[in-house]
Simulated assay, not measured.
Amino acid sequence: MSNTSPEDLLHRMMTMSEHDLSDLTSAVNAANLGAAVTMATAAGSAKDILWQQLVRAGWLVAITDVCIERTNLFKVHQTGVTPLRRLTSELYSRRQQQILTEINENLQMQSPRERRFKLLVPSNSSYLGISGKVGSTPDTGILTGSRQGCARNCLPRYINDLTFTVARPEGSREQLQNFYLVEESPGYFFILSSILADFLRQQFDPSDIQIAPVQLRHSNGAAVEERYFAVKILKTVDCIDPENSFGRRIPWGDDRLPFTECTVSYDLEQSVAADFANVGKEQYVSYPDSTEQVFNVRLRESNIALGDRLFYPALWPGFLIVEESFGQALAQLCFGGTPGYYFWMLDLENVCEGHRQLRIALR
């Protein structure tokens, strides 16, 4: 057993990138689920030095019966699962607190002239399995003959009856992320770890955000130890210039119309009005609700207060607008998945083509 203390190990790990540590995190999570994962690294690298320390601590095992030139192989020892999980959990907690401090300092110094707004949209690459009872939604198809729906103005009332399960694609490791974006088509909400949920909570007045605990499970059905929360942004800002924003009525259409001419409006039945109405108590109104229907968006930025960094535009409940530096800060806090794929930010000019090109480039 090595005399190296957990604090010494944490100090070394704090100097390493998330990419360098991702193999260890994934291997520890796999070992916790009863699977053995072999980790490979170049001899003498930062990972190799750390992993050799963990071997001396009795938490990793060096694999010596397989020889690969200039490469060392390791696996997690069963006795190392619990201490390594504690170590990696403490590491990410400290990293997030460090990033949070830097983010809050930067946000306080931000000038209104530095702000640039974008659409925050799902990347469709971080999946959660969802099961449980569901409720009703407005049956707009009976009026339009299409699948265009209504975005919810709150978290689903049945959120406590849902179970979220971390996806594990066949042949790959489970990746437990601290950030997930759940699409409702249209609209979405977040599933976040407690630290991320607290970060967003601090950015909003209580009436502008809704947070509820959720059940999150590993792919083998075991409950995730850390607490996770569903988070819905309720903040709405009347900031779209509909005469100078352009879209089309249907995703495959050839028309190019101002938002004023491609807006949908539904009178809602009482059973669904409370959860979907965004005009008065019984009406739902929305500009085009998919990126394929949107060409460009013009904002009335004078209507956006300095503290408004993440919000839904009035009459556009299927899309979140994010201030770019705030979105970058939020992305810094995400871990467990692939950087750049937790969510995407789109320019407000040429939205549909920009989204298409991004999907091609990053698929």
Rank of each mutant, 00 (worst) to 15 (best):
T71V: 15
L333E: 03
R201A: 12
R217K: 12
Y341H: 14
Q283M: 06
G34V: 10
V351Q: 09
L21Y: 03
A223G: 01
F276M: 04
L362W: 00
D161W: 00
A36T: 13
Q283S: 11
F246Q: 10
I159M: 14
V76Y: 00
V121N: 03
E349L: 06
R86D: 12
P186N: 03
V81A: 14
W316Q: 02
Y180S: 00
E292M: 09
L100R: 14
L21Q: 09
S93T: 09
Y312S: 11
F199H: 09
L50F: 02
I68H: 08
F295R: 06
V134Y: 07
S185G: 00
S271H: 13
R300I: 08
P251L: 04
A46S: 15
L162V: 12
A331Y: 00
G327K: 01
V237G: 05
K47N: 09
D20F: 06
P213T: 04
H11W: 00
N3S: 09
E353H: 09
D267L: 03
A230F: 01
N29H: 10
G58K: 03
F229Y: 15
H11Y: 00
I142M: 08
F117K: 05
N72G: 01
A30F: 02
E18A: 11
R256L: 14
Q110T: 12
Q270D: 12
Q215L: 07
H77Q: 08
P83N: 06
E301M: 08
I49S: 05
Q78L: 10
N303G: 02
G171L: 04
Y180I: 05
Y92S: 08
P122Q: 04
E323Y: 03
W344E: 13
I68F: 08
R94Y: 06
A40T: 06
T71N: 06
R248M: 11
R116I: 11
F259I: 12
D208C: 13
L192T: 02
W252E: 06
M16G: 05
S2P: 02
T144Q: 04
G132D: 05
I103G: 14
V264T: 13
Y180R: 05
I159E: 13
R309A: 10
L9S: 08
K281M: 05
E349Q: 12
R12C: 09
L91P: 07
Y188F: 15
S271E: 15
L362K: 09
F295E: 15
R363K: 14
S286E: 08
C239S: 09
S136P: 03
F343K: 05
A361D: 15
M109H: 12
T64I: 04
G129Y: 15
D205W: 02
I159G: 05
M109P: 01
Q332W: 01
V279M: 11
V294Y: 02
Y287N: 01
D347R: 13
Q53Y: 06
R85E: 01
S194M: 05
R86Y: 06
T15V: 05
R113W: 13
E324I: 01
G58S: 04
F319D: 04
F189C: 03
I130M: 15
G221F: 04
